[in-house]
Each structure stands twice: as C-alpha cells, then as structure tokens.
Design a binder for these strands. Sequence first.
DNA 1: CCCCGGGCTAAACTATTGTTCAGCAGTGTG
DNA 2: CACACTGCTGAACAATAGTTTAGCCCGGGG
Lengths: 222, 222
Amino acid sequence: MTETKVRPTDRQSGKQRILDEAMKLFAERGFDSVTVRDIAAVADVSVGLINHHFGSKEGLREAVDRQFIEQFEEVLQDPAQPDGQPQRLRDASEWVDGWIERHQARWPVTVQYFRRALLEESEWGANIFERFYKIARATADRMDAAGLVRGDIDRLWLPFLLIYLEIGTILLDPYVKRLLGRSGFEAELWKRRHRAYVKLIYHGVLPRRSPPDAASDPEEQA
Amino acid sequence: MTETKVRPTDRQSGKQRILDEAMKLFAERGFDSVTVRDIAAVADVSVGLINHHFGSKEGLREAVDRQFIEQFEEVLQDPAQPDGQPQRLRDASEWVDGWIERHQARWPVTVQYFRRALLEESEWGANIFERFYKIARATADRMDAAGLVRGDIDRLWLPFLLIYLEIGTILLDPYVKRLLGRSGFEAELWKRRHRAYVKLIYHGVLPRRSPPDAASDPEEQA
DNA sequence: CCCCGGGCTAAACTATTGTTCAGCAGTGTG
DNA sequence: CACACTGCTGAACAATAGTTTAGCCCGGGG
C-alpha cells in the first residue's frame, strides 16, 4: 500500500474536513442519500468523530448550512457593489453573475449546494430566493422610475422573469452541460450568455423595423 | 374507531394505489427520504405487497418512473398541436403552457415529480430536458427563418433562455407561492405571466423611443 | 367439493445506518 | 512526573429500513 497520506500538520483539522466533504456530498447526492460512513471515509476520519463534533447527522447538516450561508453572506457584501443597490439592470445582472463567478471559482461545490437547497425547499433556501427577489424587484423598480420600462410591461412578473433567467442557469446547468459538452459557467460561454441575457431583456428578439415578409407585430398575426 | 374505509370494489387495486402514492411521496420528499413503510401506510396496504408487486424499492421507482413517462408521452402527443412544430414563438409557449396546465390540472403531482426528476438528474430527466431543448431550438430557428430574430441575437443561447423562462417557472413555483400567496399556475396569474413572457421575448422592456431623461441606449451609458 | 392461483397480510429476518462509549495519543501545565 | 484536556478512534449498540416467507382469503374451474 503506497499510502499518499498527508502529514497531519499539512492538512486542516478533521472537523473542517468533515464540513467540507459533507458539503460536497450533500451537494452531489442530497442529505438523505449520504451516510455518515460515506462522509467519514472521504474525510478520512472515524465515524465517531462526526458525532463527537456535531452531535448528530442533523447537527452536521446545520453546521454545513451555516458554513454555506456564511460564505454566501460574505459574498453578498461583496466590495464590488459597496453602496446599496445597483442603478441599472445591467449592473444587477453583472453583479449577480459576478457573484456566481467568484463564488464558483473559489467553491465550485457551493453552486451545487445552492441548487440543491433551492430544489429541496429548505427554509433558508426560501430566504435566499426572497433576497434574489428583492434585488430583482428593486432593480426593476429603479429602471421603471428612470423611464426604462415600457408602460405595457407587467410589473408583477418582470422581477420573476429576471430571476428565472438567472437561477434557471444555475438549476439547469447540468443539462446544458450534457448538450453543450461543457458548463454554461465556463468563462467564455458564461459571458456570452450574459450578453444574450441583457440584450433579451432590453430589446427582445424582434427586429426594430418590420422584417421583409412578416407583419409588423407577429403577436397580432392571424 | 369509525373507519371510513372504502369498500374494496370502490377503489383501485393495491398495486395502483402503491404506484400513485409512491409517486406523490417521491415527488414531495425524494426517493431516498421515503421509506417503503411510509408508502404502505398511505396506500393502506402491507409492506410486503410492495415487494410482492415490484420486487424491490428500486423496482417500484422504475415502475413509477415508467408511469410518469407514460403520462408525459401521452401529453406530448397532445391533439391540440397535431401537425408537427408550431410556427411562431407564441404558439410554442402557449403549447408548452397549455401542456403544463392540462398536465397539472389532472396530475398536480406530476409537476412536482418532474421537478424532482430534474433535481436528481435521472437519465430520463435529461431526455425530457433534451426534448424541451429541441422544441425551443426548432421554434427559435423557425422564427429566425421568418426574419423575426434580429441579427445581433445570440443563436446559441436564445433557446436556453426560452427554456429557463419556462422551466424556471416550474422549478421555482414553490417560492413564488410563498411570496405571492398563491401558485403561479393559478389560471389568472398564469395567463398574465404568459403574456409577460411573450412580450419580454418579443420586445424586451425598453420603450421604443428614448425615455425623457435617459440616454437612448442604457447599455451604452457610462 | 376440492384445489388452484392471485392478491394480499403480518411477522420475522437481515442489512444498513445513526449513535454511543471506553479509551488512546499527543500536548501543555502545575 | 502526574494530570488534564483535546482531538480522535473503532468496536459495540440500537434503531431504521428493505426483504423474505408462511399463510390467509376468495373466486373460478375441474
């Protein structure tokens, strides 16, 4: 056996390893599908240590959630956006995208964890969604106040549609990956997506003037 | 005990009840979080019957998946859209929305199950996503051919953005429900959302002419 | 009438999984 | 040197959950 074990001093504490590996596993497979023995194995600690530090598996979940939220909060106060809310939609989406990029660069697992939290409808997942909503809503309101939103646009749904575009990207990325062969979060693809996103929201897809052989407004076509 | 038991002849077979109740529970809590005893309890059968009919819990999952796909396929061949692909985006989204409405009206669980399927990244969930993609892609291509898509629109991302809007609605509905107090799939809200969705895609949110006190193109603002 | 077979039950059985606990190794302190 | 403290181990334990099995009920032939 050529053990490639790192010497104790070189690696973080067992407690931290448990936290990190548990987060990975929960993100990949979901809480119930992961056993404490799985975690102990990849974290290279004994099963007992988990309960020693966290009391129970449920306690571990809470600790992992806490760690995630901590990182998340930290990033929400990102210095790139210091004074309150962004002024324009573009800023907002850039801000959100930037968040994802930074978040993902440092903790690829976190995006996955976020995905699971939303889909599993945890209480704090709902809180995070609500924060997204508030940001989207505030942005839409501000654009509106600046006269950047047409009168016939539905004020109720606009913020949600913005969120769907943003979060849909996160939730469905695994499938995009299958189709495109690579993640939509790879730098190049991701920036391209961002531009498409901003353009769609501002201008829609229709040509400014009527196309050659189509009625002026396809919505009104028979 | 005033047992309100339905007489055997009045209700469907135990096998079918297991199938239906398992689908509900899997949809709500996910496969691993549901025990065979949970299922047996709500289906009002003995634990043994599950393995009797399906061999194992895994066999039950496959049967439930099969039933879901069956219903799903059935609906994909919906007579409302008999001859091939829709011609215009509006038709496509109406078709998809209509699908959801009918699907949800008859099997509210199905939407939830779909949601879970996407989360758990099952093989057939990926297939369904791919079908969504093909529909969205074909629609975008057809609009493009009809000259309804501006030249500067990103052809790669457009179909995905359409999907994000559609599927985001499904995946995030639980949270919308919390914020709005009711599901985005309630008839009135849902139609409103649909109009907002179509309008956003066609025209974006910007006024056609420059607003009073804003530059003509906010993207080019400093 | 007997017997067969399918649908079904309930208890027993087994494997898995969360939890507990007695104790070991290293470190620092009086 | 004794002592305590912390991080940690791993076997044992208990609860949970999937599976197996002997057998009941009942309707339909032979």
